[in-house]
């Protein structure tokens, strides 16, 4: 990696200040994506601002909302009795990210802020209608994910927590890239008070997206049969050496059907 300055602020205000003052400064949460990026010399930050001194960890459930601190690791979420009880699909998703080592270091805030087009958490956030809480505001998931590796976060804005409304039922299924084990297609389905929501990760050229046609069908009839036969246009989907856009389009249907069946 290239040389950079390193700061580990002890307060959120200091962290925001450090990041806001310098456009080339970069926040570091669990580092499961960013440290490999640094090691491959794909980024040259002036300063790395380590968020691990800010707390922002922990899980609470109140008023039908699961609130997870941004620095909470995937392993903590996967093993959390509260999450397993309130939104079992969310705990299960956390347990499907990476491997043990990644789950022990990687954080929900880091994953959502990075918005990797094949990451798992963005699908949960979007399908559950989560709210992303930052140092300065709350952002609806529908407004947060703005494209591949792109979010509504401003320079220096730090996610502090993510709030997930508890759905009636939900499930996540993913079809893994055989090499990287990231999602080629991951689908999170939820039956919420406002209707069914379906979010697809791994497939879209613009990152995670909602599947309107499936949502409509599932709102009327939350069953795998209801979405059988719904075609996903391949035009806006990724194609690579592991899966063509046509194959991904097909897999969106298969994986969505499995997720709905799993949700019960």
């Amino acid at each position: 990696m290239y040389d950079f300055a390193y700061q580990k602020p002890g307060s959120l205000a200091d962290a925001v200040k450090a990041l806001g003052a310098d456009g080339d400064a970069k926040a570091l949460a669990g580092g499961m994506t960013y440290i490999p990026v640094l090691k491959q010399r794909l980024a040259k930050p002036s300063t790395v601002v380590d968020l691990s001194g800010l707390g922002m960890k922990g899980i609470s459930v109140a008023g039908g909302v699961v609130k997870i601190g941004a620095m909470t690791t995937h392993m903590t979420v996967a093993n959390s009795a509260e999450v397993k009880s309130a939104i079992p699909a969310l705990a299960a998703l956390a347990g499907m990210i990476g491997d043990d080592a990644v789950r022990h270091r990687g954080t929900i805030g880091g994953s959502i802020a990075n918005n990797d087009p094949a990451a798992d958490y963005p699908a949960a956030a979007l399908a559950l209608g989560a709210t992303i809480v930052t140092d300065r505001r709350s952002i609806k998931a529908d407004d947060f994910f703005t494209g591949m590796f792109s979010t509504a976060l401003e320079q220096g804005e730090i996610i502090t927590a993510v709030e997930f409304p508890v759905p009636a039922k939900a499930a996540y299924e993913k079809f893994r890239n055989p090499a990287s084990r990231y999602a080629i297609v991951g689908v999170f389905v939820a039956r919420t008070a406002g209707g069914a929501r379906v979010a697809v990760t791994g497939a879209g050229q613009g990152g995670v997206f909602r599947h309107a046609e499936m949502e409509k069908a599932l709102t009327g009839n939350f069953s795998a049969a209801a979405i059988k036969g719904i075609k996903t246009p391949p035009n806006d989907l990724n194609g690579d050496i592991h899966a063509s856009s046509e194959y991904r389009a097909h897999l969106v249907g298969v994986i969505a059907g499995r997720a709905v069946a799993k949700a019960g």
Partner: peptide, 19 residues
């Protein structure tokens, strides 16, 4: 599969793409 594109770049050049 070691996969080169037509220009000669190794597409499957890391564990992220070489299975």
């Amino acid at each position: 599969a070691a996969i080169y594109d037509e220009s000669g770049q190794l597409i499957s050049g890391s564990m992220m793409d070489y299975t």
